[in-house]
Simulated assay, not measured.
Amino acid sequence: MHVSERLLQLYAELDASTRIKIQESIKQNLGDGKPLSVSYEELTGNTSTDLTTDEKSAADFTAWIKNGKKDTTFLPYYVALLENGGVSVKKAIPGIEDTPLVEDVPVREDETTRSRDPIVKQRYMPEAPVPSRAERAKYQRAIEPARPRKKSGAKWLGALVLIGLLIGGGYIGYPYVSALFEPSEQAEEVAAPTEVAEPVAETPAVTEVWLTEKNVSLLSEPNSDNVTYIGDIGDRYDVLEERDDHLLLDLGIDGMTAWAPVASTTTEWGDSTVSDDQVLAWIETGVDPTFIKTSVEEYLTFSETDLYESLGQPYGRDEDALNDYVFYSGIFFVIQDEAVHAIDWTNTGTTKEEFKRLGTPTIETEDAIVYESPTYSIRMFIGTNGTARIRVTEI
Rank of each mutant, 00 (worst) to 15 (best):
V38L: 14
S48R: 12
Y11N: 14
D54A: 12
T62S: 14
N84T: 15
L14W: 05
Y11W: 08
T47E: 14
K34V: 06
T44Q: 10
S25Q: 02
V38H: 11
W64K: 02
T52C: 06
P76K: 06
K27C: 15
K27T: 14
A16P: 00
I26Q: 02
S48K: 07
I65S: 01
K21I: 11
D71R: 06
T53I: 08
T44E: 12
A12G: 15
I20T: 14
E13S: 15
G33C: 02
R19T: 07
G68T: 09
Y11V: 06
G85I: 08
T62A: 14
E41Q: 15
S25E: 05
D60Y: 11
W64Q: 05
W64S: 01
K69E: 09
S39F: 08
L82P: 05
A58E: 06
A58W: 04
S48A: 13
T52Y: 08
P76H: 03
K21P: 00
Y11P: 00
E41M: 13
D15A: 07
Q23V: 03
T18P: 02
Y78N: 07
I22S: 03
A59H: 09
K56E: 04
K69P: 01
K21A: 12
E83G: 11
K34E: 14
N29S: 14
W64P: 00
T72N: 08
G31Y: 02
V38M: 12
K70V: 08
D71L: 08
T72G: 10
K70D: 03
V79P: 07
G31K: 01
D54F: 08
D60I: 06
T18L: 03
K21M: 13
T52Q: 09
N67Q: 12
T73E: 10
S39E: 10
G33A: 04
I20K: 10
A16F: 00
L82W: 03
N46D: 13
V79H: 07
G33I: 06
S57I: 03
S37V: 12
N29P: 00
T44C: 08
T47P: 00
A12T: 03
T72R: 09
V79R: 04
A59S: 13
N29V: 09
N46Q: 14
I20C: 09
L81D: 05
N67S: 12
P35T: 04
T49N: 10
N46V: 09
S25H: 04
L81H: 07
E83P: 02
V79G: 04
E13Q: 15
E24C: 05
E42C: 07
S57Q: 04
K66G: 10
T52P: 05
I20Q: 14
E42Q: 15
I22P: 07
E41W: 09
L36S: 04
D71H: 04
L81M: 06
T62F: 01
D54N: 11
P35M: 06
W64F: 03
T44L: 10
V79Y: 03
G85W: 03
T72E: 14
E83T: 11
L43D: 05
S48N: 11
D60Q: 08
G68F: 06
L81K: 05
K69L: 08
K21C: 13
I26C: 01
T72W: 03
N46T: 10
S17R: 09
D50P: 00
A16K: 11
T73W: 03
G31V: 01
D15K: 10
G85E: 12
T53D: 12
Y78H: 13
K66M: 07
T73L: 10
T62L: 10
P76R: 07
K66T: 12
Y40I: 05
V38A: 14
L81P: 06
T72D: 12
